[in-house]
């Protein structure tokens, strides 16, 4: 393998990492703060893609405005979900997992009933479908857009969690819910807002992935497992997910250039199992007590 191929693989790896990261961001927020295992995450991504599709087709909204709009729509769905179901299950993690599995089934079937099983397409401005040449490497503009959006979201989340009053409250609840509550923080409200935020982030991911691939009711299923792996390997923190996505994205890309994408994915999954054998708490373990 010569240097040029390796450079290609590394640059493509950054793009893959950004895709894996943007899929996992919402889950990181939800799992990291509330410890909720949200198996419906993939379907929230799918809802994001469908809301973008609907906004485009029925209202003619330009694509770039669809992205934040999907955030709002899916965040509202998340809000309903949290108020109607999740909040009763916070102290039963296995049951949250099961209930959200049920939710994912319901969401997938509802979308299938409404829109049918045939694929939908999201159109993007002409300029996004071109390619950018970086030396010897050519990469599609849209992948650069995904990278930019991901970077923006990570920065936004960092700012929200570490620089605002709300962020301090979230971190306090994360470390010790009872103690935070006795200092007058409304823990229920914090959980509600973070769940909704996580769902919204899934919506953004959906509106991006809808362009990258086709929009199908079943599209979410493929993202949920890899997102969970990113969160588990990272240990549930924002920095952890960024590091885990970067590492696995690069590995995926380099391994894929030796073999093929599917085999690379298999090897990575096995490596993650081995990794967790030695570091079950993930890359960056969180200090707080989770309840």
């Amino acid at each position: 393998m010569d240097l040029g191929t390796l450079a290609n693989a590394l640059i493509l790896g950054v793009s893959i990492a950004s895709i894996w990261l943007v899929a996992a961001l919402g889950l990181t927020v939800i799992y990291g703060t509330a410890g909720v295992i949200n198996m419906a995450h993939g379907e929230l991504i799918m809802l994001g893609a469908y809301s973008t599709y609907m906004l485009q087709v029925y209202l003619g909204v330009p694509y770039l405005i669809c992205i934040p709009a999907s955030f709002v729509i899916v965040a509202l769905v998340g809000l309903l979900l949290e108020r109607g179901l999740i909040r009763y299950l916070y102290n039963r993690p296995l049951d949250t997992l099961l209930a959200t599995c049920g939710v994912s089934l319901v969401l997938m079937q509802s979308v299938r009933l409404i829109f049918g099983s045939d694929p939908k397409y999201i159109s993007v401005p002409e300029i996004f479908s071109s390619n950018i040449a970086l030396g010897s490497v050519s990469i599609s503009t849209f992948r650069v857009i995904i990278l930019a959006v991901t970077a923006l979201l990570v920065f936004g989340l960092w700012f929200l969690f570490y620089k605002t009053r709300f962020g301090v409250q979230v971190r306090a609840v994360m470390q010790n819910k009872e103690m935070a509550a006795s200092f007058g923080i409304n823990a229920g409200r914090v959980y509600m807002l973070t769940f909704s935020l996580g769902a919204g982030l899934a919506g953004v991911a959906g509106s991006l992935f809808g362009v990258l691939a086709i929009v199908l009711p079943t599209m979410g299923a493929s993202y949920v497992v890899q997102s969970f792996l990113m969160v588990v390997v990272g240990g549930g923190s924002l920095a952890g997910s960024v590091a885990a996505s970067a590492a696995t994205g690069e590995m995926q890309s380099v391994l894929a250039s030796f073999t093929n994408a599917t085999l690379a994915r298999f090897i990575i999954f096995v490596l993650i199992v081995v990794f967790l054998r030695f570091r079950p708490q993930g890359l960056f373990a969180q200090g707080g007590v989770r309840r």
Binding site: I37, P93, L94, L97, V225, F228, L229, V232, F269, I272, V273, L276, R277, F278, P280
Partner: peptide, 17 residues
């Protein structure tokens, strides 16, 4: 998995993976 004390929901996610 079990010797690493991976249990509960984490084990579930690993089986899924």
């Amino acid at each position: 998995m079990f010797r690493a004390r991976v249990s509960g929901v984490f084990f579930t996610i690993m089986t899924l993976a």
